[in-house]
Simulated assay, not measured.
Amino acid sequence: MALHLIKLCVGCESPEQLEGWIEDRLALRRQLGDPVEQIHTTRMVPRRMEELSGGSLYWVIKGMVRARQRLLEVRPFTDAEGIGRCHLVLEPKLIRTEWQPRRPFQGWRYLKPEDAPPDADEAGGDDTLPDDLKRELHDLGLL
């Protein structure tokens, strides 16, 4: 099984907001005549790039893993200051996952397949509850 990455989605309140950001960035790339692909730039280059083939980037939103995107490619590059960086090329489709709590961390981390939450549709989760109620029930240990 493929290795995954996990990262905080700082400033994002919900998967819906992240979807809006993705659409906005794709529209801007279209407008500028750039290739229409979603790229997330990171400061660190994964050393285990080969293991990431077929993996995903899992997004932590407000303390919970809430969604993932398939990782299509990892493109290391050197910026104008000579610092090694990395473009993560992602499939622009956001896949909801079951909620999984995560403490804050910096940058990205590797995520083993067995530690990744299942997709929400595969787990048969109840998506009818509002997010704030779902979070409160989770904090109370009822979900």
Rank of each mutant, 00 (worst) to 15 (best):
L71H: 05
E91I: 00
F77D: 09
K62R: 13
D79A: 09
W99V: 01
L94A: 04
V60W: 08
G82W: 07
R103L: 15
R70W: 05
P76R: 01
I61R: 04
V74I: 14
D115V: 00
K112M: 10
T97Y: 11
R103S: 14
E81I: 01
W108D: 03
E73G: 08
R66L: 04
W108H: 12
D79V: 09
L90T: 12
F105W: 14
T78R: 11
L57D: 06
H87I: 05
P117T: 10
Q69E: 03
Q100A: 12
L72G: 03
V74H: 00
L111W: 07
P113T: 10
P76W: 09
H87V: 06
L88V: 01
R96L: 15
I61K: 07
G84E: 14
P101H: 08
A67L: 02
A80P: 00
G63L: 10
I95H: 04
P92H: 12
R102L: 12
E73D: 13
T97E: 09
G55C: 08
R103N: 12
P101K: 07
E98N: 12
D115E: 15
P76T: 04
S56W: 00
D79H: 11
G55N: 07
V60A: 05
P92M: 04
P92K: 11
G55M: 05
L111E: 04
K93T: 14
I95D: 04
R102P: 06
W99M: 15
P113M: 09
P104C: 12
E114I: 00
V65W: 06
Y110A: 04
R103I: 02
Y58D: 08
E73V: 07
P118N: 00
A80Q: 10
I83S: 04
H87K: 02
L57C: 03
Y110D: 13
E91N: 15
Q100S: 14
E98L: 15
M64V: 01
L57H: 02
L71V: 03
I83K: 07
K93F: 07
R96N: 01
K93L: 11
I95A: 00
R66D: 02
V65S: 05
G84M: 06
V65F: 03
R85C: 15
D79L: 08
P104H: 14
W108T: 13
G82K: 09
D79F: 10
P101G: 02
R96Q: 05
Q100Y: 14
P101V: 09
R102E: 15
R66P: 02
R96D: 02
D79M: 12
P104V: 11
I83Y: 06
E73S: 10
L90R: 11
L94R: 02
L72C: 03
I61G: 05
R103E: 15
R66C: 09
R102A: 14
G54Y: 10
A67R: 08
P101W: 12
V74G: 01
P101M: 05
Y58C: 01
E81V: 03
I61D: 13
G54C: 06
P92F: 03
W59V: 05
P104S: 14
T97P: 14
L111H: 05
Q106Y: 13
E81K: 05
R109P: 14
M64R: 09
G84W: 10
G82E: 14
T78H: 02
P118E: 06
S56I: 00
